[in-house]
C-alpha cells in the first residue's frame, strides 16, 4: 500500500513538517500509556471508589 512511495528509509524529515508543533490534543491521542492511565483512573474514582464509599456509609437499621 505504501510500496510506491520513495524509499528514503528512516529519512530526513521535511522542513515544512518541522514548522508547526503537534497540537496538545493530538499528542494526548498519540500516547497510549497516558490514555491507559486516564481510562483506568476515571472509572476507578467515579464509579468504584465513589460507589464503595456510598455503600460503606449506609447507616445501621434501627
Amino acid at each position: 500500500m505504501n510500496d510506491k512511495v520513495a524509499p528514503n528509509l528512516l529519512g530526513t524529515i521535511e522542513d515544512d513538517e518541522l514548522d508547526e508543533p503537534i497540537p496538545a490534543m493530538q499528542q494526548l491521542l498519540d500516547n497510549p500509556f497516558l490514555l491507559l492511565f486516564i481510562g483506568v483512573a476515571m472509572p476507578t474514582v467515579l464509579y468504584v471508589i465513589w460507589g464503595v464509599m456510598e455503600i460503606v456509609s449506609i447507616p445501621m437499621a434501627k
Binding site: G39, M42, P43, Y47, G51, I55
Partner: peptide, 20 residues
Amino acid sequence: YIFFLQLASAHHLLSDPGLT
C-alpha cells in the same frame, strides 16, 4: 469512550438499595 464509557456499569444498580 476512554473517559466515560465504563461509568455506565452503574445501570445495573439502578434498582438496588443504598446507592444514591
